[in-house]
């Protein structure tokens, strides 16, 4: 009897392995092998056309950190990526938190659902579509200059949305902000909905004002969600590509918005310098790994928050 159960379990165990093998093979070929390969390639002078590669040690790393890479050094890309990330995720977190808190104040679920749906709509559009819409809005003769002139009480001033290097960076941030605000509002609403109502009721009974309740109760209890969402937003911003690529295609200068992914694309694919592009990929990987590590630390330490 006991022997039979054992064999049934073994038979089942075999199926468990069979079910997981396809995915395991997939990830081995399309995740583990490429990242190892990226590291190996980053130590060679491999180029797309010649298809020959020699071991050059850390030469590529020295090159990307010290040389200007045809006018587009990696240091500039790191700067562009970090400025974009910070300039996008901080306003986005603050705005989506405020909007989510306000949405929770609405009395009817129906209204809340409607707003959520409308806020989320831009996230449904592809990044290329989003960038193409805003490119026209940011045109010198476009809607954005008209609105800015109205707000700033000026007339006929061109704010150079897609030309001036600072404005160009702000423009990419705005496009990203517009596209993802609804997404982050929903993440915060999920977090807010998990705070039990009884806490708010207790606060009201104790005579706490809304303002007070927000700062003393909502915000501290929302800390785990905020930490998680911030890091998530950061990781997403670090990988941005389509918006910057689209604006560059539209004639904006590349230098101010030359984010790391774009530099990898141009160095590796357009210029065929696979070794250097791989070295940049490893740098990007390490930056993101650092952020993921921080994320794990934050979410783990915040798990013991109990309501």
């Amino acid at each position: 009897m006991g022997r039979k159960t054992y064999s049934i379990e073994r038979k089942q165990a075999k199926w468990g392995l069979i079910f997981t093998i396809p995915c395991l093979v997939f990830f081995a070929i399309f995740s583990f092998y490429p990242i190892i390969n990226a590291f190996i390639t980053s130590l060679t002078n491999r180029r797309a056309i010649a298809r020959t590669s020699e071991f050059v040690g850390l030469e590529n790393y020295v090159y990307i950190f010290t040389k200007d890479n045809g006018g587009f050094p990696l240091s500039n890309s790191i700067r562009a990526t970090l400025i974009f990330t910070i300039g996008t995720f901080i306003p986005m977190i603050i705005a989506s938190l405020i909007v989510a808190v306000f949405l929770m104040q609405l009395r009817k679920d129906k209204y809340r659902g409607f707003f959520q749906l409308m806020y989320y709509t831009p996230a449904v559009l592809s990044s290329v579509v989003a960038a193409s819409i805003w490119m026209i809005i940011f045109d010198p003769r476009g809607l954005m200059n008209q609105i800015s002139n109205f707000v700033m009480h000026t007339s006929g001033v061109d704010y150079n949305w897609l030309v001036d290097s600072t404005m160009l960076q702000i423009s990419t941030m705005m496009i990203y902000f517009w596209k993802y605000i609804g997404y982050f509002v929903i993440l915060f609403i999920t977090g807010l909905a998990s705070i039990p109502n009884t806490i708010y009721e207790a606060a009201t009974v104790d005579g706490s004002s809304r303002w007070h309740t927000f700062w003393r109760i909502t915000l501290p209890l929302l800390k785990p969600t905020t930490a998680m969402v911030s890091i998530m937003a950061m990781l997403q911003c670090l990988k941005t590509f389509s918006t910057q690529y689209m604006l560059y295609q539209g004639g904006s200068s590349r230098f101010p918005i030359d984010v790391i992914t774009m530099n990898i694309y141009f160095t590796g694919i357009r210029n065929g310098r696979l070794g250097r592009a791989s070295a940049m990929s490893i740098v990007l990987f390490l930056i993101m790994l650092l952020f993921t590590y921080i994320q794990l630390r934050l979410t783990r330490s915040s798990e013991d928050v109990e309501y």
Binding site: E9, Q12, A13, K14, W15, G16, L17, F19, T20, C23, L24, F27, F30, S31, F32, Y33, P34, I35, N37, A38, T41, L235, L238, K239, F241, I260, T261, I264, G268, I269, L274, A277, S278, S281, I282, L284, F285, M288, L289, T292
Partner: peptide, 28 residues
Amino acid sequence: FRFKGRNFIFLAIMSTMMIPFEAIMIPL
């Protein structure tokens, strides 16, 4: 299912989440 190496396989697959596509696109 319970089988030998299950936890290892799970961790291995989860760890690929830390590899952004943008970092492996050139070798891919």
